[in-house]
Nucleic acid binder design. Structure first.
Lengths: 350, 350
DNA sequence: CTGAAAGCGCTTACAG
DNA sequence: CTGAAAGCGCTTACAG
């Protein structure tokens, strides 16, 4: 025991002398075999006893046996693994892991927003140093289970409420969208449309809000018809764009929530014989590598994805070392990268 | 002990009764503490003793203590993590891992061909079910260390010699290249160039050989000037293409070793004012998602990347269960996907 | 449902 | 460099 009188919190406990089954048994007023049963989820323990033991276990951050320290592992959970977007984040996490001699266990949730049933059990049995959840959130129960195992959690672009005190990392989505929209306004565009993602996701919502703010500041009304919500992929965005281009008064510029959607805009424009940027300006978001090689090279908002990965991993390492996070929410800056997909609107169309 | 008289091989041993430190000690004619010292790499064991103990350890596929079984983990090692190519393979591995309730530990080697120093130690201490090495190879020593730990290895697109008996998975590179080249020949092209990757890598070599075979069969000479070797990325390929287009007699078609290189061709063509496919036909290899959205959509050879991942993982699971692999080398078929980047050569240029 | 006792697998500390 | 002995942390099998 140290001299600090601070209340037990996730991440400490592990720092003190070795906590064994015997310790827990003594503190909970039961025998070692009973603690063992609780740990292994075996039947034959009264519910009240089980609860008491679990409480003590949690409070002291018990870690299994000879492997007193956790395994040198970071759990990295992705909503889906379907874009270069994910790859850059992984690279960032890998970089920190390499430095710290940690392994990275990668899990995909196949598009679900929350890890499946067996997941928490697997993670608990691996005893990782911590968990990073990308574009996903754990249920309250899952969070509690991690906390019981003293396993810290960091989210990256969380999808749920800015919930609890879970530390999170993201990019300056609002100001990125604001700058992108201003760029279009400065070129002279007025009929500007936006392709949105799921507005329940904070980062999608922030990008729409940034768009709206720029339009409002410029005194240009946002036309409801020109704002469409759809998945963050190429195909859906192409369909929405095709519909927008068939409007009696089509937009002269589109801002997409990510580069994949912006590619859908390219695709629809090509099929409709609409030239970019002559007839239609397009701005994406992310700055994935292929945007540079698109025809024409895409104007987009750069998100420091790799750095978001290193930042999340570094936060996790700090939490695991028992440090309180400096801030609960870190937002890295975004930059507008102007290439060749944006130009003044066609004359007579402003 | 079972009744089978088969010689011990990687992957068995683990199936029989529990092999403990005591067992090993008895068989090696030493005490348990000595075995323990060897296992933990501690000094103070005579070299000859150490060797003897290691031999017995290896022969019986010793697995640590209470965790008699290995950890439910697949180690997935990548040469680099810089393309959607990697992502699809990861997805395949993840799929099998999910089914088998295994975790996937991902490691990148930052472009090196062989994992760094600490890597084997980390892997050994994690006791994974097996290792998949993608576009990379382990040193002989690393392979021996894995074998000592009874950890099977599968390679995917191996970069070294078709070496040892290490089971490997790949695609039908040779016939894919053959079909792609034939497609260009059938369109009427004669001045066909090829962008190669590092020819020490079997898959790059096979693609060049397939190209050559198709040209030979058609009785069309391969012009040395039109075959260029470079990295498998966009930028270098763009430079090579720019040089090719400046030739007095530029090629009318180019076959690239992968889609990233083919994108480099697009880029160079765009900057030189050369139209695809009117002035120049292009064929890629891989069929990554973005090829569909390129301007124009790219003709390319589809590689079943995800299925390569599932195949490698399934082989590993079988090996870990003590089964001998059905075949040492599995090649999945490739298909030519004809889109809009190929057309007959410009008239007067055949 | 619970614990005292025995047991297991490994490691540590000591003696030679 | 090596082993007999003690010890550690956990689990199993039994008794109540």
């Amino acid at each position: 025991m140290t001299a600090t009188g601070a209340p037990a919190s996730v991440g400490d406990g592990r720092r003190r002398g070795k906590v064994t089954v015997a310790t827990i048994a003594r503190l909970a007023g039961v025998s070692a075999p009973t603690v063992s049963r609780v740990l292994n989820g075996q039947a034959g323990v009264a519910l009240s006893t089980r609860r008491r033991v679990e409480a003590v276990l949690h409070e002291h951050g018990y870690q299994r046996g000879d492997a007193t320290a956790q395994a040198p592992l970071i759990e990295l959970v992705f909503h889906a693994l379907d874009s270069l977007w994910a790859l850059e984040i992984i690279q960032g996490v890998e970089e920190v892991a390499r430095d710290q001699k940690l392994g990275v266990v990668l899990t995909t949730m196949q598009g679900r927003l929350t890890p499946g049933a067996g997941w928490t059990e697997q993670v608990l049995s691996r005893r990782p140093m911590g968990v990073i959840a990308v574009l996903s959130d754990l249920t309250a129960h899952q969070q509690a289970q991690l906390a019981t195992g003293s396993i810290p959690l960091v989210t990256l672009d969380p999808t749920g409420e800015p919930l609890h005190d879970t530390p999170s990392v993201g990019a300056a989505n609002y100001s990125g969208a604001l700058v992108a929209t201003r760029h279009l306004l400065e070129l002279g565009h007025r009929r500007i449309g936006m392709l949105c993602g799921n507005l329940k996701w904070p980062f999608c919502r922030a990008r729409l809000d940034g768009f709206r703010a720029a339009m409002d500041q410029a005194g240009v009304p946002v036309e409801a018809d020109l704002v469409r919500v759809g998945p963050l992929y190429v195909e859906g965005a192409a369909r929405e764009t095709a519909a927008l281009l068939r409007l009696p008064e089509p937009p002269t510029a589109l801002f997409a929530t990510n580069d994949l959607q912006a590619h859908g805009v390219y695709e629809a424009a090509r099929q409709a014989g609409v030239r970019i940027p002559d007839d239609l300006s397009v701005v994406g978001f992310d700055d994935l590598p292929f945007t540079r090689w698109a025809g024409p090279p895409m104007t987009t908002v750069r998100q420091p994805l790799k750095r978001m990965g290193t930042t999340a991993a570094a936060m996790l390492v700090a939490l695991a070392a028992g440090q309180a996070p400096r801030e609960r929410r870190v937002e890295l800056t975004t930059d507008l990268v102007v290439r060749e997909s944006t130009a003044p609107p066609p004359t007579g169309k402003t």
